[in-house]
Amino acid sequence: MNSSVIVFPGSNCDRDIAVALEKMQFKNQMVWHKETKLPKSDLIVVPGGFSYGDYLRSGAIAGKSLIINEVIRAANDGCLVLGICNGFQILTETGLLKGVLLRNQNLKFINKDINIKVINNDTKFSNKYKKDQVLKINIAHNEGNYFTNPDHLKELNNENLIAFRYCDENGVVNKDSNPNGSLENIAGIFNSKKNILGMMPHPERMVDNLISNTDAVNLFSSLLN
């Protein structure tokens, strides 16, 4: 499977995701944001970091970069797109995913391992997980507080477009297990065609027992499935 990782000035998780993809046997290429053509890709990853130093709003400038037009075109043609952390923020700024990531409710940058629950396991990104499976995964963000309008929130629930919710280690989803104030503990969402996933937690950090755990391996093996 061919993957492309888009690199912006200020991206800092691009090499981590490249290592994770290669470990999972993807044929990966890095694509600089000034490129106007994407290599042949089955999966495009918009990585985490602080593209353009978070100027204006997180993801706002990257969301108007040259390569993004190609990402939008590929996504509309059905290519799989994964936005992680700042990548999720960028995808909302492009309109590929609806909603917005606001400043964390407690105004703090949060970097810690938390738990999320797999809500929809019937997608290209999550078919190797069990429904309601609890994963331990790292978050590291200042703007991860997911917000959207009531109509879209309804759509997310009715169409099963919520990928992950923050929970505690027993899978309980409540206010105490919500690290950043996200609406209904949302940690990741799909677009309506489910070929785009945006998530605040970092799956690329959870693919090796040497540094953490392997809870995100199944996300990548789902894509290969």
Binding site: L56, A60, K64, E93, K98, G99, V100, L102, F147, T148
Partner: peptide, 9 residues
Amino acid sequence: KKLLANLII
């Protein structure tokens, strides 16, 4: 509309 404001919020 295009850049300075995010009209959702």
